[in-house]
């Protein structure tokens, strides 16, 4: 538990909470980006350099931009006016709070059995690459197929139907 953990955790929580509660959708995406950058910093803090940078590359560079494009193309950048009734929102928050309470209870009751301290594992990109190419080569291939299918599928779905029949 270092001071940097608490600072980065605060950034992450503020960013994600703002992303889920702000009215303007673009603000939501921007604060989500802040939260995800905080999460990437947490990965770096945990010693997973490769995963942290991948997180920034994929989420800030691709997913946030994609979401922004979707917002622009669906004309939902203006603040929403027709919010769902308060009881509906309250029930959602209550469910989430219950989930958090249960998870927190489970974690705190399991604290004694959790490993407390260990040395920082030294993991280089090289090791990750070797593991990807040997031990995890089948999942890698499957991910490749999945990403190709997603690319083609997304392009076809987003294609204008009138344009496609041309």
């Amino acid at each position: 538990m270092t001071i940097s953990f608490f600072i980065i955790a605060a950034i992450t929580i503020v960013g994600t909470a703002a992303a889920m509660s702000l009215k303007n959708l673009v603000h939501c995406v921007l604060s989500l980006t802040l939260g995800l950058v905080g999460l990437a910093l947490l990965f770096l803090l945990l010693g997973a350099q490769f995963v942290g940078f991948t997180q920034i590359l994929v989420y800030v560079g691709a997913v946030a931009i994609l979401a922004v494009f979707a917002i622009m193309m669906t004309r939902s950048a203006e603040p929403m006016t027709n919010l769902p009734p308060a009881s509906f929102r309250l029930s959602g928050v209550l469910i989430a709070a219950t989930v958090f309470a249960v998870l927190a209870w489970a974690i705190s009751s399991a604290t004694r059995s959790l490993p407390s301290q260990s040395s920082q594992p030294e993991v280089s990109v090289n090791q990750i690459g070797v593991a990807l190419m040997h031990q995890f080569v089948l999942p890698l291939e499957v991910i490749g197929v999945l990403l190709t299918a997603a690319l083609v599928g997304a392009a076809i779905l987003a294609m204008d139907e009138t344009g496609a029949s041309r």
Binding site: T12, I13, T16, A17, A19, M20, S21, L39, P84, F88, R89, S91, G92, V93, I95, A96, A97, V99, F100, L103, A104, I107
Partner: peptide
């Protein structure tokens, strides 16, 4: 767990 609950709350209320 907190992040998960925030995401869940967002998915349920928005």
């Amino acid at each position: 767990a907190l992040l998960f609950s925030i995401g869940l709350a967002g998915a349920l209320t928005r």
